[in-house]
Design a binder for these strands. Sequence first.
DNA 1: ATGTTC
Length: 376
Amino acid sequence: MGNPISGERSAACARISKFYNRAAWIDGRAEEQLEQVAGWPGMTAVAGFPDLHPGRFGPVGAAFLADRIWPQLVGPDIGCGMALFRLDLPRRRLKLDKAARRLAVLEDGADLHQALAALDAAGLTGLIGPEALGTIGGGNHFCEVQVVDEVMDHTRTDLQKDDLCLLVHSGSRGRGAGIFQGLDDSWKQGFAAESDAAARYLALHDAAIRWARVNRALIASSASEALGCEARLICDTVHNHVVPHSDSWLHRKGAACPEGGLVPLAGSREAPSYLLEVPDTVPEALGSVSHGAGRKYDRSSMHGRIRKTRSDLAALTRTRFGGRVICGDRDLLLEEAGQAYKDPDQVLQNLAGFGLANAVARLLPLVTFKTTGGAA
DNA sequence: ATGTTC
C-alpha cells in the first residue's frame, strides 16, 4: 500500500485506538496498514475494530478522522451497508429448498417501475439511474434469511425467539466504483475539504449512499415478496462512507455507523449474526463499530484451503445449522466459505469488553443467497 | 467492490 505522498513526512502520527485483545485473530499486515494510514497527512485519529483485516488501500474494519477527504479510505463500494428486516412469516411456513428457489428472483433486480418510484422518493431522479437496482452483487454481498436464536435484551427490540429476519449486505454496485475510478489522480493525496474536487466527490458520494440504501430496501422487498411475506426495517447501517465529524472528516471502511443505536454484525454462513446495541460512550471509537466478523483468510488463499471435489463443493451449499447456500459461482462459493471468516463470538466479546456494543439478539443463517449463475 | 472477463 504505502503512503501515497512519497517524500512527504507527516509531522505527527494520528492517535491509534485498537479495540481488540490478544485473543483476537488479527493479520499483522492489517495492523501495519492501520499504522501506515495513521501517518498520512492530516490524519488525527484512527480506530481499529476486532474484525480488522487487510484491504486494497488500507485496513478494513477501521475508522479514520482527518482534516481532508481520502476517497481510497471509503473505497469503490461507496454506501455499502447491512440492513436487517423482520419478516412476518412464521418459521414453520419457511420451506428451505422452496425459499432457496424463489429467491432466484433477486438475480433479475427490481421491477423498473418500482425502481424508478423508489429513486424518485429518494430524490435521485436525474442524478443516478435504476440500472442494477435490486441486485446483490458479488464478493461478500448476500441476502440471507435468518432465524432469531435468542433475544438477550428485550428492552431494545420486539424480536422474539424463532422470528424470521432478512439480512441484506449490498452497496452501490457499479455506481460507487464508477465514481471512484472517474476521479482524477489528485485523490491520491486526499482532497482538501474546501476544494472543488472535494465538493464534486461528496455530491456523487452522497447520491451513491442514498442509491445503496434504496438498493437494500428493494432487495428486501423482492425477497419478501418471493417468500410471500412483508419485510419491516429494523436498521440499515452504512459501513463505507465519509461524513463530517467534529470539524473533521470521518471515514468508515468496513466500520458501521449505528442507526438508532443499533447495528447488525454479520457472522458467516457457518456462524451466528448479531443485532447489537451501541451505547456510543467511547469517543476513541469514533462513533463506529464492527459490521461483521471480518475475513480471516484472503480470497486467493481460500483456493488452497478447500478441496474442489464435487462432494467438497456440494458440502459448502449446506451449513452446520441445516441451512442452504445458493451460489452458482464455484470460486465465490469457496472464497466465501464460513472458514474464511473470524469467529463472530470472539469479535462480539472484544466489542463488549471495550464497552462498544452489547448483544441484543443472536440470529442463525437459514438461506444464504449469493447468485444462481456465474462460472460453471 | 466492479455493466470486471483468460
